[in-house]
Amino acid sequence: MFKRYLITSWLLAVTSTAWALAPAPGFKVKTTLGDVITYELAGKDIEINSMDSDFKYEDLTQKEMDNLKSLVKAKQEYGKMFGFADWKATGQKLIEKNGERIVLIQGNYKDAQKKTVNFIEVYWANPAKAGQYLITSDTLSLKMDNFSDYLK
């Protein structure tokens, strides 16, 4: 009986994680602050922050993505207040394949020392799950087309 329970739990765990986007193998948890988990890749200047999300699969549409443009100014104001000044988006894209939708935004901002930090924001959802991630690097130039190198 207990063995069957264990197998069931295992199957559930495996299937549920297999369906969610997660940092690529090699990324390890570095810090946790509230609901934000920061992962790092040893020896590489790259970090992934994952946090809880409220959006759903049906929210990831071209129209919703276009609406984000009206919030860029607000995002920049948040940036000034919370330590990521001069936030700029240099590109965005919606990908839909295999029952998943992904909104990608790439760009850069200035940290407290005025150093440029490159980022990709990833909003991912399938009909059952959703997640949002922030990939950042001080030195690597991140391209949104390569986001799947970091999130699998």
Binding site: G34, N49, S50, Y78, F82, Y109, D111, L134, T136
Partner: peptide
């Protein structure tokens, strides 16, 4: 997601 930036910095 501003929170993620803050948590990084």
């Amino acid at each position: 997601s501003s929170g993620a930036y803050f948590a990084r910095e």
